[in-house]
Design a protein around this nucleic acid. Structure first.
Lengths: 327, 327
DNA sequence: CTGTTAGCGCATTCAG
DNA sequence: CTGAATGCGCTAACAG
């Protein structure tokens, strides 16, 4: 790889002149500019971003941690983030935590050491203090689809309680009285909010909230299958199940298949996802839609904004959810 | 962020001693080792990977370019790559090219400037010379799901011609005689191979290959819809359509829905994907499965191997495809 | 306006 | 076995 020095030698100027024309950071006479540009082209010179990063203390790197890249909701968010970042000339450093505390910590350290200019944290688990530390370290940070209670940072989210309430209310309006809820781990605020929404909808309809209808999963399809088994084993099984994750829903669906249960006639399914696949496949699965790709875009915008100005007050963006009834 | 110098001062040793214990690159007396470790812990010291990268000329960064992160096949590959890289202590720099030549060039430059230790190129478009240049630049490079003709590099792929042949043969075995083919752009070797496979299957069955049954798409669902429209408008429309991309298939399916065409009874659909969703949804869509996640893993292993030893002979890994008949 | 110089944080000689 | 010195490639003062 050619260095700036080689370009300078070839153009017969000093390295600072080369730097000046490359960064347009100072006036350079047209003829020297031309000589430099030509030399750079001939050498196929590309500035070394590592050296530049060391000097400027900015890497133009944004770290992003997601639970699982292959889950449609997250890949949509990643897509949105990537789109915004690329436009702004930033690159994306992506990591998958698989909802594991250990992986998250490890990645947090890795991203810190790589000197990312900012981080996007999706639905992180675990002790708030580790996160709080990251916040205090002044590193620009945006939480996505997470509800940090203790820390004051930038957040992009949807109103989980309200979304769940609307979804369950829609199921009630369809005549369901016992509605199972498959949520993620309870130590996530997101899960608790959704449970609250489920309760609120039932209360509004004057229905009791049978806690045994709540199943905890870990967003894998396996946990979805297990949850459905548990729900169907109840003395009074639900007639509808709201599985708040795409894979957990497909797990439920697979279990229905295995049991020969007709969907939605024998058991109605609802999920939390905005995958366009729900429109083209049977059985019809209603859903609470969140604008995942847009959340990613907004998160990227937020982090860039904060990088530009660290003193901005923390901002929370709450995007709307929509109930999509199908079938 | 604390620097190595601050750690040294706090531990009352020299910088090189700190470096030695942190990298275990030289013997340091137990007591000094202890002092250094404690100082590092107290300061929450994390080595600056940028400075280290500048010095060592290795960033432990791997760049990966995919056409579209949200396409299931690619998110599976990304997942596989990320899994392998993380284990090896490398980070993933991810970019989406949207099958656009411009974006690909831009990213290629960006990754070069970021001094990635290696690159994973998925199904890249465009002039081979740009790619060839990257190869000649000695930068470790692995092609995935691409068939570079001119260059000799590491490759992970599936046998596209054979996969397509098997898929079409299966459709023929089901009684179909006119089989539409929706492929990606013809300037991709992958597409040409699949067309070859389609032809081979027809030839083996003694059927003519009507070229008007071949539609070119761009892997978006919109292009899938358009392709199906075109196929159905033929004087003699196909009874089965092989859409060689997940989104192109869902596009076809959406169009069938819009037209009230029953799948598979009136029109059978086959796709090229290993999305587990195909197992749980209706209508049954047969598929030619490729092990996408594994391709990602193998690609990551290959690039790490090459980084470790640049002089290894180029290797091509061809993974098997499987026909999954559904419905 | 252009060239010289001093670090950015770290790893790595080489003396001591 | 430990510490002082050099340079990775680049930017930003500063001097000329």
């Amino acid at each position: 790889m050619p260095t700036i020095r080689q370009v300078a030698e070839r153009a017969k100027v000093s390295i600072s002149t080369v730097s000046a024309v490359l960064n347009q950071s100072a006036y350079v006479s047209p003829e020297l500019t031309l000589r430099v540009e030509q030399a750079a082209r001939e050498l196929r010179y590309t500035a070394n971003a590592v050296a530049r990063g060391l000097q400027s203390q900015r890497t133009r790197l944004i770290g992003m941690l997601v639970p699982d890249i292959a889950e449609p909701v997250y890949s949509l968010m990643v897509q949105g983030v990537e789109r915004s970042l690329r436009q702004a000339g930033y690159s994306l450093l992506l990591g998958s935590t698989h909802n594991r505390q250990r992986e998250q910590s490890r990645y947090l350290g890795m991203l810190r050491s790589k000197q990312v200019d900012g981080m996007l944290l999706l639905l992180g688990f675990g002790p708030e203090d580790e996160i709080a530390e990251a916040v205090e370290s002044q590193l620009p940070l945006v939480f996505v689809a997470r509800e940090p209670k203790s820390v004051a940072g930038d957040v992009v989210m949807v109103d989980n309680a309200e979304g769940a309430r609307k979804g369950v209310a829609a199921l009630i309006a369809r005549g369901h009285r016992r509605i199972g809820l498959v949520v993620g781990p309870r130590d996530l605020a997101v899960s608790r909010s959704r449970i609250d929404g489920w309760r609120a909808a039932l209360a509004q309809a004057g229905l009791g909230a049978d806690e045994s209808l709540i199943c905890e999963g870990d967003y894998t399809d396996g946990s979805g299958r297990a949850a459905l088994q548990k729900l169907l084993a109840l003395r009074e099984p639900p007639t509808a199940v709201f599985a708040t994750g795409f894979l957990m829903m497909t797990g439920c669906l697979a279990e229905c298949r295995a049991l020969g249960l007709a969907v939605p006639s024998q058991l109605e399914l609802m999920t939390w996802s905005d995958s366009p696949l729900l429109d083209v496949f049977d059985p019809p699965i209603s859903s609470v839609e969140q604008p995942s790709a847009e959340m990613g875009e907004r998160a990227a915008e937020l982090i860039l904004r904060r990088i530009a100005n660290k003193d901005l007050p923390p901002q929370t963006i709450v995007l709307p959810t929509h109930v999509r009834l199908r079938g």
